[in-house]
Computed example of a mutant assay.
Amino acid sequence: MTLSTLSALVAGLVFVAGMVGAGLMDLLTMKIRNWLVLTLLAFYVVLAPAAGLDPETVGWSVATALVVLICGFLLFSLNWIGGGDAKLAAVTALWLGAERTPDYIMYTALFGGVLSVILLSLRKLELPLSGRASPWMSRLSMNETGLPYGVAMAPAALLVLPHTIWFASLSV
């Protein structure tokens, strides 16, 4: 196994763990912590060159991530998404690359729509006593609570990941 193949494999595992962690973290706490986003960023910085991503590919990924970050903070300023969502979207775009970020945004919107319909429908129902004992379930059942958009972002990213350069590196 070459260093680039091993690096791509480690990158895939790190990214999957990070996205699953972000989705769960957002579901349970309504927050995506900076340490998680910074960890994904740090691993990208180390693993992208080790996996053989060329400077042009990395440059386009960085540019795409910056555009996503700017758009994310615009949406945050309008109170449409949380700051953690904006940062997670940007670091996810970095990992997925310029070619796959539009797919990621599309799937995030679709999963976010489904999540919205489900949560808004459940909020019309009475929360059972067992659910009231759980802080995160109680929080999600309140109309004042926003949507944990990381729950939509994580599966969207995982759906797109196999079509990225990281998996192309594994098949070489």
Rank of each mutant, 00 (worst) to 15 (best):
S4W: 09
V10H: 00
A11T: 06
L13G: 15
V14Q: 05
A17D: 07
G18V: 05
G21P: 03
A22L: 05
M25F: 03
D26I: 02
L28N: 07
T29Y: 07
M30Y: 14
I32L: 08
R33M: 12
V37A: 07
L38R: 05
T39S: 11
F43Q: 01
Y44Q: 00
V45K: 02
P49W: 02
A51I: 06
A51V: 07
A51C: 10
G52H: 08
L53F: 12
P55T: 12
E56P: 00
V58I: 15
V58K: 05
G59S: 15
W60G: 00
W60K: 07
S61G: 14
S61P: 04
V68A: 13
L69A: 15
L74W: 15
S77G: 13
S77P: 08
L78N: 09
N79F: 11
G82H: 00
G83F: 06
G84D: 04
A86S: 13
L88W: 02
A89S: 15
A89R: 02
A90W: 04
A93C: 12
L94S: 00
I105Y: 04
M106P: 00
F111C: 09
F111G: 04
L115E: 00
S116E: 00
V117F: 03
L120D: 04
K124S: 09
K124Y: 03
L125K: 14
L125H: 12
L127G: 14
P128I: 11
G131Y: 09
S134Q: 14
S134P: 00
P135V: 11
N143A: 15
E144C: 10
E144P: 02
G146E: 08
L147A: 06
G150D: 01
V151K: 01
P155V: 08
P155Y: 06
L158F: 10
V160K: 08
P162Y: 09
I165G: 01
W166G: 03
F167E: 04
L170S: 01
S171A: 06
